[in-house]
Design a protein around this nucleic acid. Structure first.
Lengths: 258, 258
DNA sequence: TTCTATTTTGCAAATTTTACTAAATAGAAA
DNA sequence: TTTCTATTTAGTAAAATTTGCAAAATAGAA
């Protein structure tokens, strides 16, 4: 949403385009060089941070909605997206956290409390993961900003979003064992050290530097190339790439690491 | 719903009690003696079978709603319940499958198409599992019947319920490795042969009769008792029981079998 | 006492996982 | 050209786990 006219139309008529009582909140994780971050938004009518979210168009699937919402914030189209849980506690939204007056004023709309937006809503949780160095977080008319936070420095969030982050991270870590999620976090050609760092950082756990790559190669998920990378005054590491065929098969059937 | 008055009130005013645009469909699995079944309903206004479902009260959590809906069909309170996925394709409900005239006539309500019930709806999927020998499926005013179907003899279902069953079964099988679901499917005291059958049947897969129980005992999930059961002219098998402490710990942290 | 159907148990082989350190090497510095 | 530094790479033995097998035990019926 870019203009106040759009916002007013959304408040007045959004229920025609979007499904009321259903929203979506996305835990967008970002990895780069040993760091795991998450994208948080600060909305103008709210004191505090929350996950970027949105509503679902009547014409789109849930996956499409998640993709659209994530793209609005990251500009990226091609990240790993996964539905992990739907949240529906009746008290998941603390209405007293919302400054209705401020919101009314901002939007130039009276009786905001009667809007379709302010009724009880369940929220579908997706998580996404991408390389955060590729992303410039985008704010919109509603939010003052949208920024990457280190996963260990996430402030207390509004609503039930603390819980969402916890569960999303749990799901991400579990799925990292089954699916080659790392593929989206590395360049086409990468070194063993780099892929090792992805797993260690996301899992927040030490993995043996000698045995770990052995397994990836053994499973056939990655293939050694006949190229090296120059990294200054050190021995040049070999480059590897994901094996797309094995990758897709692993996506279907699931694999196990460790 | 027992009476036509209740039904009419539900159609007219249900949106005040329930969250519109959100429903819940439950894949209720039943196990007993080498058989895995699923509970299917046939509604009066629909040609065909579907999963028993319902709506979510504005005052209850999703888990509570699932528990209530499952209890309506099975009478049971204490079965294993798990949210597994939310379904939201815009074309998941094929409106032409619904006989509006029949429904209108049955309910004694005109303009049923304008009801809050007939707008686009996303559906939250839970699966449940219980011992089907403990259950007498219950129909209600809306459904002609509700019955156990062998998992291999499920007819094509309405809407996206084929997909739901497929995904629910997948989730059940995956979770059987992580959680001691079997606890709900066996009497307090059971034999190794019985628990072995639970796993083989649900997974639809052979498990070594000698090695499999060893693992369960080794993990501490089950404990040998100093009792045997008389089973006619054969060697009497020892009885086992679940270790509740280990069980709860396994529920929290997850375990792995095989 | 014998017989039948079922439960129970052990071990060796194969496989997988784990733990561990020294050699190689690219470029910078001397 | 040589030395030095920081980093990558590689192999093996020990430990743990999983797998594959078959024979003995036994409760009650005949």
């Amino acid at each position: 949403m870019e203009t106040i006219e759009e916002l007013q139309d959304f408040i007045a008529n959004g229920y025609k385009t979007f499904i009321p009582h259903v929203s979506m909140d996305n835990a967008i994780f970002g990895y780069h060089d040993h760091q795991l971050k998450i994208l948080l938004s600060r909305y103008k009518a709210l004191e505090g941070y929350c996950l970027p979210g949105g509503y679902i168009k009547r014409t789109e699937t849930l996956d499409q909605a998640a993709k659209r919402i994530v793209k609005e914030r990251t500009g990226l189209d091609d990240l790993y997206l996964q539905q992990y849980k739907t949240f529906g506690d009746p008290d998941r939204i603390k209405w007293n956290e919302i400054d209705f007056e401020k919101f009314s004023e901002m939007a130039g709309v009276k009786h905001i409390k009667d809007s379709w937006l302010m009724d009880q809503t369940i929220s579908i949780g997706y998580y996404a993961i991408t390389d955060f160095s590729l992303v410039t977080p985008k704010s919109d008319f509603m939010s003052t900003y949208c920024e990457w936070f280190n996963i260990n420095e996430v402030p207390p969030l509004l609503y039930d979003h603390d819980d969402m982050v916890k569960e999303a991270l749990q799901a991400l870590r579990l799925q990292l064992y089954y699916y080659p999620i790392a593929e989206k976090l590395l360049p086409k050609k990468f070194t063993l050290t780099e892929i090792h760092a992805v797993y260690e950082t996301i899992l927040d756990k030490k993995l043996d530097i000698r045995n770990f790559p052995k397994k990836l190669v053994f499973l056939g998920l990655i293939k050694k190339l006949n190229e090296k990378r120059n990294i200054g005054p050190h021995r040049a590491p070999y480059l590897y790439k994901f094996d797309i065929k094995k990758y897709n098969k692993a996506l279907e059937t699931g694999t196990t690491l460790t």
